[in-house]
Each structure stands twice: as C-alpha cells, then as structure tokens.
C-alpha cells in the first residue's frame, strides 16, 4: 500500500476502493514557477488525511486544487468520479467546504451572519434564510464552541475565534434543510488549511476532537494541511507528505511517520515514539541536518 518507488513521483494512493476525491496526475504552476508536478492523491469516503510538508512544498496549492479553486495545468481533480472543472460551484459547495488559514472581511458582519453565509448553496436566488437555516447555523456555532459569540462583530474576534466561526460557517454548508436527506454524510469533504495555527492548546485539542467526531460519527471526509506533526499524528489516519513539488510518501500514519521520512521531508533528525500516556505517535525534533 505504501508506495516506495525509488524514483519518480510517489503516488498518494490511500485506498483505491471508493475514491471520493481524487487528484489524478495533477500539475500546477503560478506563471513559470512550478508548484506541484504530477501529483496523485486519492481520498476515500470517510478518510481522515493529513497533508504535511515544508514551507512552499505546495500544501495549500494542493488543497485549492482539491477544492476546485484552482484549475490544474495538467491532470484533473474528480469528486465522486466527476471532474470538478465541469461541476458548478453550488453543487461542489454542498459537498465540499474549505476552512482557509485566515479570513479577513472587507466589511463588518456579525458572527451569525458569517455562519449563515454557509447556507448560500441551499437557498434559491431571492430566498431568505429561514428558521431551518438559523437552526443549523446555531447548531454549528454550538458545535464549534462559539455559540456565545453569535452577536459579536466578526472583526473583533481573536484569531482562534475567527477560525472556529469560519469552521462553523463551512459546516453549515453541508446540512440539508429537509430531513429526507438522500445524500449521506459520508460524501461530504471538509478541507482545512492550518486549522490549529492560531489556536491555543485547549482549542487545538478541542478542534482535533471535533474533526475526529465529524469523521467517526458522521462519516465526514476530512483533509487537513498542517505543520503540526503531533496534531496530524493524533488526528489523521493517513498522511500525504509533500516535498519539492511531489509526494514523497503517503499511507497510514503509523507507517509514514518515521524518522526516515521526516528526515527526507524536513531535513530534520527526529525521534518518533509512541507516547506513554496518550498512546499516540509523538515526534520530537532533535536537530537540523
């Protein structure tokens, strides 16, 4: 399962059985600056995948390609087997949501208004948010621990509060308004870019727990870009390691997160062991190579 070809691109195949989201031989460049070259990633429905790699290795670009925000220069991205380039934004938005690293508002909205913006893909052209939408928004605020911020101005929030409110807004995209939901939770994809970068320790744990619950209890597919190896080790079942525009290793966390791969990805000697109390893999960086 873990591809370990000596040369060429290593394919990030995690499970071929039921690919929900798939990047197929994808390359991307900003102008003449190549960011990703011939990258394959396959994420099964219900997957919980971490994308790791040094600064500039293309993590965020990969995330944007998977979200259909960027069009690959070569290759294609498919959601449920359909090329995202051919899908309209509303169809994608009901299935796939993105929590970016930072959100700066051009104008000042209340927290509730921001979360209600997640309901857009479920409303007709001139339809106003109804009681069901408001109910969904409040549930998502509660789920992300931001219920008491509802009437606050988004701009006055701390970085961590903003991130959790944006997560609530993203989760609000998935909820169908009717109870007869023919679209199971398993087909929803949540993409997060550095979700813990501005969170304190308590909220890092809480966010990891929330993402774990969404994945475990609701079958939601979660893809997380992060620099935090221990956060990824504790949360993700599978990892994709990027280095120099390519995938260096991919597969189950236990198999991929080794001193050798960490050295290959980050040029850092690290000790990887199972923590005595938490029983999760723990990475302790030792020295730069």
């Amino acid at each position: 399962m873990i591809p370990a070809h000596a040369s060429g691109s290593v394919s990030g195949v995690i499970d071929e059985a039921s690919p929900l989201l798939r990047a197929d031989a994808v390359s991307f460049s900003y102008g003449s600056h190549a960011v990703l070259h011939d990258v394959d990633v396959t994420v099964p429905a219900g997957g919980l995948v971490g994308v790791l790699g040094p600064n500039g290795s293309g993590k965020t670009t990969l995330l944007k390609l998977l979200a259909g925000l960027l069009t690959p220069g070569a290759g294609r991205v498919t959601l449920d087997g359909r090329d995202t380039a051919g899908l309209d934004r509303v169809t994608i938005a009901r299935r796939l949501a993105v929590v970016p690293q930072e959100t700066e508002l051009a104008f000042d909205y209340s927290v509730l208004e921001i979360v209600l913006m997640g309901r857009y893909p479920h409303l007709h052209a001139f339809e106003l948010e109804g009681p069901a939408d408001l109910d969904i928004a409040r549930r998502m605020l509660a789920a992300t621990g931001t219920a008491d911020l509802e009437q606050r101005s988004f701009r006055t929030l701390s970085g961590g509060e903003k991130q959790r409110v944006i997560l609530a807004s993203a989760l609000a995209q998935f909820e169908s308004r009717t109870t007869t939901d023919d679209d199971p939770g398993a087909s929803r994809v949540l993409l997060l870019d550095e979700p813990t970068s501005s969170l304190d320790l308590a909220f890092q744990l809480e966010t990891a727990a929330l993402l774990g619950r969404l994945n475990r209890d609701h079958g939601m597919t979660v893809i997380v870009c992060t620099h935090d190896l221990n956060f990824a080790a504790g949360l993700c079942r599978d990892l994709v390691l990027l280095r120099d525009r390519r995938i260096l290793a991919a597969g189950p966390t236990d198999a991929v997160l080794t001193p050798d791969t960490i050295a290959a990805v980050y040029d850092v000697d690290a000790d990887v062991h199972r923590h005595a109390v938490s029983r999760q893999l723990t990475v302790v960086p030792l020295a730069r190579r």
Binding site: A67, L69, R89, I92, E104, A106, M117
Partner: peptide, 10 residues
C-alpha cells in the same frame, strides 16, 4: 469573505 471564500460557498 474573499473570492475563494465566496467560491467555496457556491
């Protein structure tokens, strides 16, 4: 929310 925030919401 920015062009990308708007696009991912449909």
């Amino acid at each position: 929310l920015g062009a990308e925030g708007a696009a991912t919401r449909g």
